[in-house]
Simulated scan of single mutants.
Amino acid sequence: MEIDLISLVTLVWNRRKDVFKITFVFAFLGIVTALISPKEFSATSTFIPQAEESPSSGGALGGLASLAGVNLGSINGGSEISPVLYPKIVSSINFQKALLDAKIRVNGYDSTMTYQEYYNQVHSPGIFDMIKKYTIGLPGIFIKKLKGEPEDLVIQEEDGIIRVSQEEYSHCNRIASQLKIAPNEKEGIVMVSFTMPEPLMAAEMVKFAVDLLQEEIIRFKIKNAKEQLRFTEGQFLEKKKEFEDAQDKLAYFKERNQNLNSEYANNQLDRLQTNYNFNFEVYSELAKQVEQAKLQVAKNTPVFSFIQPVTIPLEKSNLRGSTVLIIFLMIGFSFSIAYIIGTEFLRRRHSK
């Protein structure tokens, strides 16, 4: 089926008034949308997580210790959280609950208030939010009323049980849509952004989120270091006892066989001496590992190296009014062409 472009252009030109009318309607809708759409500002921060180099696991003594049943490599490794897991941390309910207490400054108010207080007392939902709530979200409202959901939600966590109210749960859902974290494994950077109705609030929230994430990483590292210290001290005490036993056996044998010069006695002495040297080297290495583990617990260094610190955004993150208008004009013009072609096709079909 061939398309006659000349006839198509002629048809559109003859019905150009319809094109103007439909495009004008969409342009009006674009202006209204641009005027009533809420303002959104996104503040961002980009950083590089500092990855500690694993200290030597004992060199040649590592193999020696492994023969004794001690894995020296496991003592120092595994103390870092991969940036890939950062989104899991910020999406956890306890992290989001902590964000509810973030202090922010609001235009027109002298004192600061928390994120939760702002959305409970100051922020009023926009027209779009109201339309969305009572159109798309209306079935959900009815379902909640029929189900009679409890006032509090109980969420099982690894370290205990967290109780979340329905109000807090709705705030956490909003935070999940406002807070974005994007780790880039290839470049080794992490970008965190937060969207709020005012630029200063967006900057304060993203800074609070980054600081909170840093605290979580440090807490995890200290927890790991303490566990490593307990493990190393346990291995140290065990090998210390074995070393002291080998030391006592060697001393006892030398004392009982001072004047003996037989091959059997020399062979026994060599065995005891070798066992003593072996336990002494493992014992000495574990003593060093205990001191390293103690230093690791006391270590307190910055976790993030910032490439882009938090700055107050100057422009809206959502579409500009002019961009919205252009989009609606394009949609209106395309719709008018489709409408003219469709109505002409139906007219010709009915006339046959």
Rank of each mutant, 00 (worst) to 15 (best):
Q228I: 08
E244G: 01
K207Y: 15
F208Q: 11
D245M: 12
R219A: 15
I218Q: 04
V210M: 06
K226V: 14
I217F: 04
R219D: 15
E242F: 02
E242P: 04
E244K: 03
T232E: 01
Q214I: 15
K226I: 15
D211A: 12
N224G: 07
K226C: 07
M205V: 10
A209F: 12
E244F: 04
R230V: 06
Q214H: 00
E233F: 01
K223R: 06
E238A: 10
E204C: 14
I218W: 09
M201W: 05
E227N: 11
V206C: 05
T232A: 07
R230M: 05
L213G: 08
V210N: 08
I218E: 05
E238H: 13
L200Q: 15
N224E: 07
A225E: 14
F243K: 00
I222F: 08
N224W: 06
K221Y: 02
L212R: 13
A209Y: 04
K240S: 12
A202Q: 10
F220L: 05
M205D: 06
P199N: 04
E244D: 09
E238S: 11
A225Q: 09
F231H: 05
N224I: 01
I218P: 10
E198W: 02
V206D: 00
D211Q: 10
V210T: 13
K241G: 00
M205T: 06
A225G: 05
N224S: 06
D211F: 12
N224M: 11
E204N: 09
F236D: 01
F236G: 00
F236P: 00
E227M: 08
L229V: 02
E242R: 08
I217M: 12
E242T: 06
F243H: 02
I218L: 07
E216R: 14
F208N: 14
P199S: 01
E198R: 08
T232N: 03
K221A: 06
P199A: 01
K221E: 09
E216N: 10
R230L: 08
A203P: 09
E238C: 07
F236Y: 12
E215R: 09
L212H: 13
F208V: 13
L212G: 11
A202L: 06
E244P: 02
K241A: 00
K223V: 04
